[in-house]
Nucleic acid binder design. Structure first.
Length: 821
RNA sequence: GCCGAUGUGGCGAAAUUGGUAGACGCACCAGACUCAAAAUCUGGCGUGGUUCACCCCACGUGCCGGUUCGACUCCGGCCAUCGGCACCA
């Protein structure tokens, strides 16, 4: 018997226990149904769920349940992105060990997720910090290594002093560490990289295949990859026979206007290029540049500075001898580290030339050109000998072509994307499976010896080196090739390596023979719907795309892109700003569960804003949702005795009132279904729930006039429509009504197109496009009939009384517009 | 500077894709029930004008202009907010 009042926490606990026991969401790999892979970005086990998690996983869960009801075999898994610095910091602060801290958090958060009522197949849970997972992360590293996609090099890298580790370019946000926000400096270190740049063009091109991704994310990736097309031009040095300086330019059309050349302070040949009398000044300048932070260095506000080297290049186009300068506006890691300077047609060169009184030559003319002002627009060439008069855009190719023929130039495509630096000088990550042997050098650990386990005898309090270095046992090993004493690499992999392939592991989560079975991965992937935060627009989403392509090339799988559709959900706000502990405006899911139940949280977090937009959490909104759940429950409670599963009626013989509520049901089914399918507009889905519920209340007001077959139909329809969102309440009601099966296993409702519209229409009668009258009319009247109806209206008559009708526009089933003069 | 997104009542928003602007909800106001309160139910709720009142009229989707019988929706030009990239040659 349904209680009078709905008490969510008690009822939810009951179903929590039952679902824990029966595991209703176990997925069958061999089902004949079409597959659907619904995936949330897996959480970092920081301790407790926050509302961002609740929003993310609720959205995915409703999608998963909806698709399941529609007849798909749905894979909806969950796992833990569980390596990373916070565990290590917690270990230092609390004297715990990172593994224990992490596993305790996972255990707590798992319970919170289950209480949220997720239809997750927990048997496929993956945890990246456990050896049965990171063994395969290491194995994949070795595959990339064998392919030449993982390599070690000494390079200037981003260093975060606070985190005491290096960072990938993608993890430096405005010159600061993505995790701790402290300033990042450059250090020369020998580090491991993944050759993501080998895939620059594919990563860019294949964005076009991702029709299910938003433009915002695609544009961000495009910007990040940063393709530009131009030319390499090579310059001979007047004073030195054996040195040549290549520059990269997108403006080969301005080559006749070069008046000097700039190299970056870190340019490799800079010492050779400096004359003895300039050496001291140049060295001082370089020292100074080194001291500057990245933020300072890259500021466009700062006045340009530089020092001449004393040597010169010869412009091969003109024979002009031009001085070489060192200036920090040239960047060592873009292009060739050297820039040809054409002051008249580049703002930076212009500013620099003005400051140091360097000559300028105009080589482009066009509309808007002003003598003595920098001109960067298109135009036609002047002072460029045989190219004079050529359109400047065409000239880029023509001049490059010419340089190529003459042997001092070539076409060049340049990308901003850098290789992915993956080593970290930290403990809590997957050890890099490489050994250094005094005889054989760098040697890969043999696959049979994986995993390389993290040592447990470490001291987390050490400063300035990785805690792994303090292990007495880890470092010493023998060379897999020659058997002599060797040392292990003590770095671990960036956590983003672990998260770059976890979605693949879900297809075959417990395979201990291989990373994943190829057929299973090909069966389940790509992910049909991926849902998560916009903060991963570049980082995780770019890395995962790279991994998929690299693994395809390692012949491990047969698709190009991992995520067919991507939904980036908005943030959860409270009082207009992002929830955060420091602001003290967080809402604890546990409290919501305890006071209102998870259904209320689910309903509310979907209700007010579409998923991609930010969502403002309010206490009154929560109250309102709880009231709605109670309102629905009361409705069922009131008519429990009258609801039958074997209802039976013929629409044609129903009264107008009965027919109308049946129509409402069909309209509700249609709209709810369409709104879910159309970009998961759950906010309007929930409006439909309310409208439909209100209509049923209205229908059932006069208890004597209820047709219980009709009532049964509409109530059971409502219940099924709500079931993906309010998972506990719908199950409770369904079971109390005497159903022997779970409502979550029932098929989605179907609607009849003819019944999914109102029996009559409201004809809009306009004069000159202004609304004058609304007229109730039958469906599907002819245009003539509609026109007559409109003209018969008193209000219309009044409005057109003393005017001449010019024409009449009729939109069937909608409106009549009378145009008058 | 380049690129992307957004802009509608006091607030969150909706609008069948060119056809009733503001569905649904929050907040608020009034009424019913109650000794009272909560809960629940009923009604109202863009701005201005007119009216005892019902009605009615005008205006209204960031701004300016255009196309159209008709524009939140399409076109052109701006402005603002948020986000990404950026001494990238």
């Amino acid at each position: 018997m349904l209680e009078k009042e709905y008490f969510a926490p008690k009822i939810e606990k009951k179903w929590f226990d039952i679902w824990e026991e029966t595991k209703p969401y176990k997925v069958d790999d061999n089902s004949p149904k079409p597959k659907y892979f619904a995936l949330s970005m897996f959480p970092y086990p920081s301790g407790k769920l926050h509302m961002g998690h609740v929003r993310n996983y609720t959205i995915t869960d409703v999608v998963a349940r909806f698709k399941k009801a529609q007849g798909f075999n749905v894979l909806h898994p969950m796992g833990w992105d569980s390596f990373g610095l916070p565990a290590e910091n917690a270990a230092i602060q609390r004297g715990a060990n990172p593994q224990q801290w992490t596993l305790e958090n996972i255990s707590y958060m798992t319970k919170q997720l289950k209480m949220l009522g997720l239809s997750v197949d927990w048997d496929r849970e993956v945890t990246t910090c456990l050896p049965d997972y990171y063994k395969w992360t290491q194995w994949l590293f070795l595959q990339l290594y064998k392919k030449g996609l993982a390599y070690k090099k000494n390079a200037p890298v981003n260093w975060c002093e606070k985190c005491a580790t290096v960072l990938a370019n993608e993890q430096v946000i405005d010159g600061k560490c993505w995790r701790c926000d402290s300033e990042v400096t450059k250090k020369n270190l020998s580090q491991w990289f993944f050759k993501i740049t080998e895939y620059s063009e594919q990563l860019l091109q294949d964005l076009d295949k991702l029709t299910g991704w938003g433009d915002n994310v695609k544009t961000m990736q495009e910007n990040w990859i940063g393709k530009s097309t131009g030319a390499i031009l090579k310059f001979k040095v007047k004073e030195l026979e054996d040195v040549e300086i290549p520059v990269y330019t997108t403006r080969a059309d301005t080559a006749f206007g070069i008046t000097y050349l700039v190299v970056a302070p870190e340019y490799k040949d800079i010492e050779k290029l400096t004359t003895p009398e300039n050496l001291q000044k140049v060295n001082e300048y370089r020292e100074n540049a080194k001291k500057m932070s990245e933020i300072e260095r890259l500021s466009t506000e700062r006045p340009k500075t530089g020092v001449p080297l004393g040597t010169h290049i010869i412009n091969p186009f003109t024979g002009r001898v031009c001085p070489i300068w060192v200036a920090d506006y040239a960047l060592v890691d873009y292009g060739t580290g050297a820039v040809m300077a054409v002051p008249y047609h580049d703002e930076r060169d212009f500013a620099f030339a003005k400051k140091y009184n360097l000559p300028m030559i105009q080589v482009i003319n066009g509309d808007g050109f002003k003598e003595g002002e920098c001109y960067i627009e298109k135009g036609y060439l002047v002072n460029s000998e045989q190219f004079n008069g050529v359109d400047s855009v065409c000239a880029r190719d023509k001049i490059t072509e010419f340089a190529k023929e003459q042997g001092f130039g070539e076409f060049k495509t340049q990308y901003r994307l850098r290789d992915w630096l993956i080593s970290r000088q930290r403990y809590w990550g997957a050890p890099i499976p490489i050994v250094y042997c005094p005889h054989c050098g760098e040697v890969a650990v043999e696959e049979k010896d994986l995993p390389v386990l993290l040592p447990t005898d470490v001291d987390f309090s050490v400063k300035g080196k990785s805690p792994i270095e303090t292990s007495a046992t880890f470092k010493e090993t023998v060379c897999p090739k020659c058997g002599s004493k060797a040392t292990r690499d003590t770095d671990t992999m960036d956590t983003f390596v672990c998260s770059s392939w976890y979605y693949l592991r879900y297809a075959d989560a417990h395979n201990d023979k291989e990373c994943f079975n190829r057929d299973l991965v090909n069966k389940w992937l790509p992910v049909d719907q991926y849902i998560g935060g916009i903060e991963h627009a570049i980082l995780h989403l770019l890395y995962s795309r790279f991994f998929t392509k690299a693994l395809r090339d390692c012949n491990l799988l047969d698709f190009d892109e991992p995520f067919a559709n991507l939904l980036t959900q908005g943030m959860v706000l409270k009082d207009g700003s992002k929830m955060s502990k420091s602001k003290g405006n967080t809402v604890d899911p546990d409290e919501i569960y305890a006071n209102y139940g998870a259904d209320t949280a689910r309903l509310f977090i979907l209700s007010d804003s579409p998923p991609a937009r930010d969502f403002d959490w309010t206490d009154s909104g929560v109250e309102g949702c709880y009231k709605f759940i109670s309102r629905v429950y009361r409705l069922f409670s009131k008519f429990q005795e009258n609801i039958k599963f074997d209802y039976n009626f013929d629409v044609r013989s129903l009264s107008k009132k009965d027919e109308d509520i049946v129509r409402e049901a069909h309209i509700a089914i249609k709209k709810v279904t369409q709104d879910i399918e159309n970009e998961f507009q759950f906010n309007t889905v929930i409006s439909r729930y309310r409208e439909f519920t209100n209509a049923i209340y209205e229908y059932a007001k006069d208890e004597k006039a209820i047709n219980f077959d009709v009532l049964s139909f509409v109530l059971l329809t409502l219940l099924k429509l709500i079931s993906p969102v309010c998972v506990f309440m719908s199950e409770e009601i369904y079971s109390e009504l005497g159903a022997k099966t779970s409502i979550h296993n029932e098929k989605w409702c179907e609607y009849d197109e003819n019944l999914a519209k109102a029996s009559s229409i409201t004809l809009i009668a306009q004069v000159n496009g202004k609304l004058k009258d609304k007229i109730e009319a039958q469906q599907d009247l002819t245009n003539d009939e509609l026109e007559k109806l409109a003209l018969a209206s008193d209000k219309i008559k009044e409005a057109i009384a003393d005017k001449t009708v010019v024409k009449v526009i009729v939109v069937p089933n909608k409106l009549v517009n009378i145009v008058v003069k």
